[in-house]
Amino acid sequence: MRLSNIASTFKKCRQEHRPALLTYTVSGDPNKKKSFEILKAISSHADICEIGVGHNCNTGDGKQIQNSTYRAIKNGIKIKDTFAIVKKFKKTKNAKPCILMGYYNSVVQYGENRFVRKCKQVGVDGLIIVDLPWPENRNFSKKCKKNSINFIQLLSPTTSRTRMKKIIKDSHDMIYYISMLSTTGGKLKVSPEKILENYNKIKKINKSKNLVIGFGITIKTISSLKKADGLVVGSALCNEISKSIKNRQNSVTNVSNMVKNIRAKLS
C-alpha cells in the first residue's frame, strides 16, 4: 500500500534520526497574501505545515493564536480563501504535507461531505478538529479516511489508558499528544521528562503510529523533546507575526528565520 504524504514524511525524518518539525500558522494572518508567503517561506525548513482555520469563539486557543485568529478574520479570511491558499501552496516547489486545524463549526457550516471533498480536491493531507473529540469524531474520521485524508486524533494528559487504546485504534497515520493541561500558547509547566514518559506510554500501545507532541514548544524547549516522532510549534510563530507587525518588520522573513533556527536545534 502506498504511504500517505504524512506517513512518508515521518519515515524520512526517522531515517534522518530526527523528529519531524510541524509548524502552525493561522490562515489569513496577517492577511491572505502574507500568510501564503509565510507558508511558502517556512516550508523549506518545516516537514509538515499545519494551517489554522481560526474560529472566534474557540475553546482551545491561548492569547497568541487568538490574536492571529482575530487579525485574520478582520482582514477578511474566508474558508474558500484558505482552500485557495492550500491549493496554491501545494503547487509550489518546496511544498510540504498540509494539515488544516480548526473547530467543528467551520466544518458543520460548510457541510461535512463538502468540506472533506474540497480538502481532497485542493490537496489537504490531514485534519485536526480540536472540538470534535472521540467518539464524536467517529463518523467524520471515517469520511476522511475514505477520501485519503488523515484525521488526526488528539490525546491529552487527562485521557485515561482505556480511552487511549480506543482512540488509537480509530486513529490514522498520526496522533497528536497535548503535552500538558493548557490551551495553546501556555508556558511549558510540565518537565520534558514527564512529557516523554507519557509519550512512551502511548507509543507502547501502538508503535506504528506517528506520535507528535504539541503545546508549549518553543525554540527554548524543543531540544529536550527530540525523542518524539514529531514536534509542533505554533503559538511562538503566531507571536512572532504579532511582534513583527508591532515593530514594523517583515513578518515573512522573521517567521521563516525563526523556523530555520528551530529546525537547526533538531539536527
Binding site: T59, G60, Y104, V130, D131, L132, P133, W134, E136, L154, L155, S156, P157, T158, T159, S160, R163, I178, L181
Partner: peptide
C-alpha cells in the same frame, strides 16, 4: 447516547483535555 436532544441539539464538542473532567 451522544447527549443530543431531539437527535440534533447539545452534545459535548470539547477539546480532548476536557473529556475526562
Amino acid at each position: 447516547k451522544d447527549y443530543l436532544y431531539g437527535g440534533k441539539f447539545g452534545g459535548n464538542y470539547v477539546p480532548e483535555t476536557l473529556k475526562k473532567p
